[in-house]
Protein backbone atom coordinates (compact mmCIF):
# COMPACT_ATOMS: atom_id res chain seq x y z
CA UNK A 1 0.00 0.00 0.00
CA UNK A 2 1.40 3.34 -0.98
CA UNK A 3 1.15 6.10 1.55
CA UNK A 4 2.77 9.42 2.19
CA UNK A 5 5.41 10.63 4.59
CA UNK A 6 2.85 12.90 6.07
CA UNK A 7 0.94 9.93 7.41
CA UNK A 8 3.76 9.78 9.92
CA UNK A 9 3.31 13.47 10.69
CA UNK A 10 -0.37 12.81 11.36
CA UNK A 11 0.48 9.94 13.68
CA UNK A 12 3.12 12.07 15.39
CA UNK A 13 0.55 14.82 15.84
CA UNK A 14 -1.76 12.35 17.57
CA UNK A 15 1.12 11.03 19.69
CA UNK A 16 2.12 14.54 20.73
CA UNK A 17 -1.44 15.47 21.66
CA UNK A 18 -1.73 12.23 23.58
CA UNK A 19 1.59 12.84 25.27
CA UNK A 20 0.36 16.27 26.35
CA UNK A 21 -3.09 15.18 27.48
CA UNK A 22 -2.19 11.93 29.25
CA UNK A 23 -0.40 13.55 32.20
CA UNK A 24 -3.14 16.15 32.43
CA UNK A 25 -5.69 13.37 32.65
CA UNK A 26 -3.58 11.64 35.30
CA UNK A 27 -3.38 14.88 37.23
CA UNK A 28 -7.14 15.18 37.09
CA UNK A 29 -7.36 11.70 38.63
CA UNK A 30 -4.75 11.77 41.37
CA UNK A 31 -3.95 15.37 42.22
CA UNK A 32 -5.86 17.11 45.00
CA UNK A 33 -8.66 19.43 44.00
CA UNK A 34 -9.65 22.00 46.51
CA UNK A 35 -11.21 25.02 44.98
CA UNK A 36 -11.31 28.21 46.94
CA UNK A 37 -12.22 31.75 46.15
CA UNK A 38 -8.73 33.11 46.73
CA UNK A 39 -7.08 30.36 44.72
CA UNK A 40 -9.13 31.13 41.67
CA UNK A 41 -8.20 34.78 41.75
CA UNK A 42 -6.00 36.32 39.11
CA UNK A 43 -2.44 36.39 40.40
CA UNK A 44 -1.04 39.86 40.11
CA UNK A 45 1.56 39.91 42.86
CA UNK A 46 -1.01 39.58 45.58
CA UNK A 47 -2.66 42.85 44.71
CA UNK A 48 -6.27 42.85 43.65
CA UNK A 49 -6.52 43.09 39.90
CA UNK A 50 -7.48 46.56 38.83
CA UNK A 51 -9.05 47.75 35.63
CA UNK A 52 -9.48 45.97 32.37
CA UNK A 53 -6.98 43.22 31.44
CA UNK A 54 -7.67 42.82 27.75
CA UNK A 55 -6.54 46.30 26.86
CA UNK A 56 -5.69 47.89 23.57
CA UNK A 57 -2.07 47.51 22.68
CA UNK A 58 0.07 49.96 20.86
CA UNK A 59 0.20 49.97 17.06
CA UNK A 60 3.89 49.12 17.19
CA UNK A 61 3.18 45.46 17.84
CA UNK A 62 1.03 45.41 14.73
CA UNK A 63 3.73 47.00 12.58
CA UNK A 64 6.21 44.38 13.70
CA UNK A 65 3.66 41.69 12.88
CA UNK A 66 3.14 43.16 9.40
CA UNK A 67 6.88 43.25 8.77
CA UNK A 68 7.07 39.68 9.97
CA UNK A 69 4.37 38.57 7.53
CA UNK A 70 6.06 40.38 4.65
CA UNK A 71 9.45 38.85 5.37
CA UNK A 72 7.93 35.44 6.01
CA UNK A 73 6.32 35.52 2.57
CA UNK A 74 9.68 36.62 1.21
CA UNK A 75 11.35 33.54 2.65
CA UNK A 76 8.76 31.39 0.97
CA UNK A 77 9.89 32.91 -2.31
CA UNK A 78 13.52 32.49 -1.37
CA UNK A 79 13.38 28.77 -0.61
CA UNK A 80 12.32 27.65 -4.12
CA UNK A 81 14.84 30.07 -5.57
CA UNK A 82 17.63 28.60 -3.45
CA UNK A 83 16.69 25.04 -4.42
CA UNK A 84 16.48 25.81 -8.12
CA UNK A 85 19.48 28.13 -8.23
CA UNK A 86 22.04 25.45 -9.08
CA UNK A 87 20.21 24.53 -12.26
CA UNK A 88 19.66 28.07 -13.46
CA UNK A 89 22.60 30.44 -13.26
CA UNK A 90 23.34 34.14 -13.43
CA UNK A 91 19.91 35.31 -14.52
CA UNK A 92 18.42 33.73 -11.41
CA UNK A 93 20.95 35.57 -9.26
CA UNK A 94 20.14 38.91 -10.90
CA UNK A 95 16.44 38.31 -10.41
CA UNK A 96 16.95 37.49 -6.77
CA UNK A 97 19.16 40.52 -6.19
CA UNK A 98 16.38 42.70 -7.62
CA UNK A 99 13.85 40.95 -5.38
CA UNK A 100 16.04 41.35 -2.32
CA UNK A 101 16.72 44.99 -3.19
CA UNK A 102 12.97 45.65 -3.28
CA UNK A 103 12.49 44.07 0.13
CA UNK A 104 15.51 45.88 1.54
CA UNK A 105 14.03 49.14 0.30
CA UNK A 106 10.91 48.35 2.32
CA UNK A 107 13.01 47.61 5.38
CA UNK A 108 15.04 50.79 4.85
CA UNK A 109 11.84 52.82 4.59
CA UNK A 110 10.58 51.40 7.87
CA UNK A 111 13.97 52.07 9.41
CA UNK A 112 14.06 55.66 8.15
CA UNK A 113 10.53 56.28 9.41
CA UNK A 114 11.69 55.19 12.83
CA UNK A 115 9.19 52.35 13.30
CA UNK A 116 12.01 49.93 14.01
CA UNK A 117 12.69 51.82 17.21
CA UNK A 118 10.98 50.18 20.14
CA UNK A 119 9.67 52.73 22.57
Amino acid sequence: MVAYNYVFVGLLLLTAIGFALAPLALVALIAPRKRSLAKGDTYECGVKTHGETWVRFRIQYYIYAIMFVVFDVETVFLYPWAVAYGGLGTFALVEMVVFLALLSAGLAYAWAKGVLRWV
Partner: peptide, 8 residues
Protein backbone atom coordinates in the same frame (compact mmCIF):
# COMPACT_ATOMS: atom_id res chain seq x y z
CA UNK B 1 1.81 14.96 38.69
CA UNK B 2 0.49 15.35 42.24
CA UNK B 3 0.21 19.11 42.17
CA UNK B 4 -3.17 20.71 41.95
CA UNK B 5 -4.08 22.19 38.62
CA UNK B 6 -5.18 25.73 39.35
CA UNK B 7 -6.97 27.63 36.63
CA UNK B 8 -8.08 31.16 37.44
Amino acid sequence: LVKENIVP
